[in-house]
């Protein structure tokens, strides 16, 4: 019925090293994910993804949204994993963040890219805990939902 992980994949007509740099380099990430990206591309590297009003992610952002990122594993040109959406002042854990894993597999001259996002089942809202930090993890989910509702409407 409902799974606690999402897996999507795509075949890209480009060699693995080009797909790798597109997926992992912050300057490239700012072209397909957020409006700005800044982090050290190494295990434990920290940084953030930033969305700005009127930018790519959603047209309805009222203020700039900065989402923390922590790199977990970098195994070029095959595997890249990070955690995100944890409160900015906390270390990411399976409870306060989502795990994103990219896997690249060569297919002839092309590259198969898969992404798995997991950890939804771990996120719990403490009853009665409306702390600001706890809220921020959800902000991005809801922005993402809004983004897609808008895209669906635009597509009609």
């Amino acid at each position: 019925m409902i799974r606690n992980e999402l897996k999507r994949e795509i075949v890209i007509e480009a060699p693995q090293d080009i797909v790798w740099s597109t997926v992992t380099e912050p300057e490239q990430i700012a072209l397909w994910f957020s409006d700005a990206a800044e982090f050290d591309l190494r295990p434990d590297g920290t940084g953030s993804l930033t969305w700005t009003p009127g930018g790519r992610a959603t047209a309805e952002l009222e203020e700039t949204m900065v989402i923390p990122v922590r790199v977990l594993e970098v195994d070029p040109p095959r595997y890249f994993a990070f955690r995100w959406t944890h409160p900015a002042d906390e270390d990411p854990t399976p409870v306060n963040s989502l795990l994103v894993e990219f896997t690249l597999t060569p297919e002839g001259d092309a590259t198969r890219l898969s992404v798995v996002e997991s950890g939804f089942e771990e996120i719990e809202r403490d009853a009665g805990n409306e702390a600001e930090g706890h809220d921020s993890g959800w902000k991005i989910h809801l922005e993402r939902l809004r983004e897609h509702v808008q895209q669906d409407l635009a597509a009609r």
């Binding site: 999402l6 797909v19 989910h141």
Partner: peptide, 17 residues
């Protein structure tokens, strides 16, 4: 909808790469 938003990102990665 979250799945769809990853599809959008993968499409953009594809075009860029």
């Amino acid at each position: 909808e979250v799945a769809a938003s990853w599809d959008g990102r993968l499409q953009r990665i594809k075009h860029l790469a």
